[in-house]
């Protein structure tokens, strides 16, 4: 039996009183490509409490998938109304340079936004492209967090491309969304070697079998990538260190209990679990967690 007291707490009550979660990768709103039962704001808030999640950092689906202006405004409204539960990433769509320039000029006046969100695989712009440079220069100047969707062997955001950007902008702090799914060794080595790059656990616990997807999947097909993910957390902790791994769930896509279960039932120490589930996020978010009361589990 797993000897972890934190795992026992989760089994017994669904959350831990000693080890809260800060979820560094979430979204808001419905999504065009699939049905998400938990996409309403009230449902999201309920689920956060049930899983002992103290804060979630989100970007809005509308901003990512269609209309950055509308989606970012919706995100702003949520962080304004629920600052104890939600913080935001401002979505940058590099296909709209004028809007990006305008948004960056006003970014420091927005409260509740901890950094920027890039979605290169879906905006079809390589993260190394000059079109991302203004946002990256801004993040570098102000030490912002930048959550970048990454995927193994992608022509837009493969781990090696994020390493290039991470080295070019050393003061920006990069979360490697989905940990460069599939190119695990490369991603973990990058997080080990670059002090400003972190591994994000969002949806890395599911073995993606692309052969099982009916036609029209949004995800790139990558048959050469490793289809087995059990033991990955242990590998990340052993190789890059638990201080370089952050918790993410993609909520309302994926269950936070599923993601928590993968961390709680990995063969790692409780100290590493604390790092992954909240310590690292607390360090990265710093001032954004100060001055707000804390949500409590039910």
């Amino acid at each position: 039996m797993n000897p972890s007291p934190i795992a026992r707490e989760y089994l017994e009550q669904g959350y831990s009183t000693t080890c809260p979660i800060i979820d560094m990768h979430g979204h808001l709103g419905p999504f065009y490509g699939c049905y998400l039962p938990s996409s309403s704001l009230e449902r999201m808030r309920h689920r956060l409490k049930r899983c002992g999640v103290r804060r979630i950092i989100c970007s809005h689906h509308s901003a990512l998938a269609c209309d950055a202006e509308r989606g970012n405004a919706l995100m702003q409204e949520v962080v304004r109304q629920h600052p104890d539960e939600f913080l935001g990433y401002w979505v940058i769509n590099p296909n709209y340079p004028d809007a990006t320039a305008r948004d960056l000029r006003s970014f420091d006046r927005r409260t509740g936004f901890v950094g920027l969100k890039f979605w290169p695989d879906y905006h079809l712009v390589p993260v190394t492209s000059p079109r991302y440079a203004p946002a990256l220069e801004y993040a570098d100047a102000y030490g912002l967090l930048v959550l970048v969707h990454t995927f193994g062997e992608s022509p837009f955001d493969a781990p090696g491309m994020l390493a290039e950007v991470g080295e070019r902008y050393p003061r920006a702090r990069f979360l490697m969304g989905h940990s460069g799914y599939g190119e695990w060794e490369r991603s973990v080595a990058i997080a080990r070697d670059l002090p400003n790059v972190y591994l994000d656990l969002t949806s890395v616990f599911q073995a993606l079998d692309f052969s099982q997807m009916p036609g029209g999947s949004l995800m790139p097909r990558a048959p050469a990538l490793s289809p087995h993910v059990n033991g990955l957390i242990e590998y990340m902790v052993e190789t890059a260190g638990s201080h370089k791994v952050v918790f993410g769930s993609d909520l309302p896509w994926y269950s936070q209990h599923y993601h928590a279960g993968a961390v709680l039932f990995a063969h790692i120490s409780d100290e590493a679990r604390h790092d992954i589930l909240h310590h690292n996020a607390e360090r990265l978010l710093g001032k954004h967690l100060v001055g707000t009361s804390e949500s409590k589990p039910p």
Binding site: D209, H257, F265, A266
Partner: peptide, 14 residues
């Protein structure tokens, strides 16, 4: 061992 052990268990448990 394709997926992470314990993840689906805790999802159903809670």
């Amino acid at each position: 061992p394709d997926n992470a052990g314990g993840a689906a268990m805790l999802t159903l448990a809670r």
